[in-house]
Design a protein around this nucleic acid. Structure first.
Lengths: 365, 365
DNA sequence: CTGTTAGCGCCTTCAG
DNA sequence: CTGAAGGCGCTAACAG
């Protein structure tokens, strides 16, 4: 029924071994012979049997890219970039094409592990893990173990937009400067004069959430430490119990909407809201408006990530730009071994403040 | 080095065949034996060799989901839903999990074909093609041939959000009513009194683009046909040369921005702009504002798809809702054979008008 | 219910 | 540069 390598060999009047060699292009073959084989392949419409060749060669051309939420452009942009970087470089049709493939964990630790097992089962050539990680110790241990096993089965492991992991299983790590971004964003607001700032954080237990929040609080703490001197420039002191001004929730607009309503209820004097990311910020904006308040005159709002739609928000959203595309491309190249890992295996990717119209000095009281 | 099925068999003191049977769970095995085998699997940390089992069984647990642009939530939502529908149903750890995997073609016909070949090579269990198709005859022929080959190699083929293809290779098709959606959106504008409507279309040669545009024009043609009677209700007659009021471009905000500027230059009396999708509409809104015009007082703007951010646009975007999540889930279930194909293999999925604040009656002249 | 026996289709030494 | 032979790890009939 299905045509095999042997059929091609027969038609080209060579041995199966020769056909294999021209198909893999990793061994010298006479040009005329190659020609003949290629023609036979075409005529027979032959397609290599992946499982068979993976079995024999003990490797496959599968590369897995794990994302937390495929419907979120944050991941879509990185994954698309990585996939492109992995897929290209193979000319024409058959070559050493890798099958770059994205797996959506939905943020579930079980699914993350399951996908890794499935990928291990397929003997994947490489695995790229994107986005923030869960901080649960049990899960971290399970992940480390799994990655270690993948690594010594020959799978390259790359982390993209995720903090470094201990244990030598990871080939390269590209980590975002979420802490620095959070800090710069807070400093921007502080400079504008804000002191009472509400924070709609991402899901608890996630590294991204924690780092952004830490940066934010560090900047505020610096103001408090400076005391009356600097504090006087803004609208009063920095509130003591930051926890009361922080609400955790998922990375969606609903969370931003609900949390903002609650935050403004807890403290109607808030002059600014910082959101976990741009999507959440959109929800926050909607809530502020529904309360009859203006942005930024009454309340400033800021996001994180600088997704494509953020510049078109009204008013244009102040946010922190992460070079998602570049990071994805680099992760893809790293996974393919097309690029040397950074010194120490870890590279930190900068986060740049994008000050736009959704933030302004607080209204004079 | 790596532990194999035989190792597990030895440790559990059974034959390899028995181990295989408990792992695949498709054959009766005594509970006590199963227990013993499972324990051995755990102790040895055994992971099935995918390629080997695919080779022997002549099938694999890979399911491919092809998307045109993974960074676009339109595809992300469908793909995520499909992936979830495919992945679930397998309890615990090892079971008959499918590896649902998304492949990003970037809208390139070559990559679409390449991915199909790669999936064919892996002997994928099913393939889901999402989103609009290219109308190039050569590409259609190549796709039909490729899908036919996949189908008779036992791969299930499902189309999701894509028009039906001739040839019996496709198991099921879920097609969006883009034409009806385009028509209803235009009718909405016409009812409001608009007659001079600019249209920022998607890429030429794509079915989605054509269908939405056809619906739009059909509605306008109906007004023209009605003549002065109905035409008198709006701001003048429907312009003759619709082509002049239509500009094609990619599905991004930049395209919406640039095209809107050009459209308004060509005809400053335009009272409404319809965009190919919501992302494009955002760009159109930005252009309208940058021109110093108000939405919807001076110019109405409408999108298509109803992506999550559209309700938070300012003003909230009038658009056409496509049930992307539901369609994705259904496509996933169809691909897994968990659901019977619709009668005739084809189901049309409705598109619902979401009238919001970005559209209003045109300003009186 | 469980063991035995053959391959699945290809890659990879090893000769020539 | 090319052919011959063995085996990758697993599943699928068959027996028992």
């Amino acid at each position: 029924m299905t045509v095999t390598l042997a059929d091609v060999a027969a038609r080209a009047r060579v041995s199966p071994a020769t056909v294999s060699r021209v198909l893999n292009g990793n061994y010298p073959v006479a040009a005329s012979t190659r020609e003949r084989v290629l023609r036979a392949v075409d005529e027979l419409d032959y397609v290599l049997n992946g499982p068979a060749s993976s079995l024999a060669a003990a490797t496959s051309d599968l590369v897995g890219i794990l994302v937390n939420d495929i419907a979120d452009p944050f991941f879509g942009i990185m994954a698309g970039a990585a996939q492109t970087a992995i897929g290209e470089g193979a000319s024409g049709r058959a070559g050493g094409e890798k099958l770059a493939v994205v797996c959506n964990t939905g943020g579930s630790p079980e699914r993350e592990l399951t996908y890794l097992t499935l990928l291990q089962r397929q003997r994947a050539a490489a695995v790229v893990l994107t986005g923030g990680a869960l901080e649960d110790p049990a899960h971290i241990a399970a992940m480390s173990a799994k990655l270690a096993r993948l690594a010594d089965a020959g799978t390259t492991v790359v982390l993209c937009g995720r903090p470094p992991m201990s244990g030598g299983a990871v080939t390269a790590t590209l980590t975002f400067d979420n802490r620095g971004g959070g800090r710069r964003l807070a400093e921007h607001l502080i400079t504008l004069g804000h002191r009472r700032i509400g924070y709609v954080a991402g899901p608890a237990e996630r590294t991204t959430t924690r780092h952004r929040l830490e940066g934010h609080r560090a900047a505020l703490a610096a103001v408090s430490a400076a005391g009356g001197a600097d504090g006087g420039a803004g609208t009063g002191p920095v509130p003591d119990d930051q926890d009361r001004l922080t609400i955790h929730g998922p990375y969606d607009r609903r969370s931003g909407y609900d949390a903002t309503l609650e935050l403004l209820r807890r403290d109607p004097d808030l002059t600014a809201i910082v959101a976990a990311n741009d999507t959440v910020a959109l929800g926050a904006c909607a809530a502020v408006r529904d309360l009859g308040l203006r942005i930024p005159e009454d309340v400033s709002v800021a996001g994180f990530d600088d997704l494509p739609f953020s510049v078109d928000a009204v008013p244009a959203l102040t946010t922190v730009r992460l070079p998602l595309h570049e990071a994805g491309v680099r992760a893809g190249r790293l996974a393919m071994g097309k690029e040397a890992p950074p010194p120490g295996g870890i590279a930190t990717i900068g986060a740049e403040l994008m000050a736009r119209e959704s933030t302004a000095p607080p209204r004079k009281l």
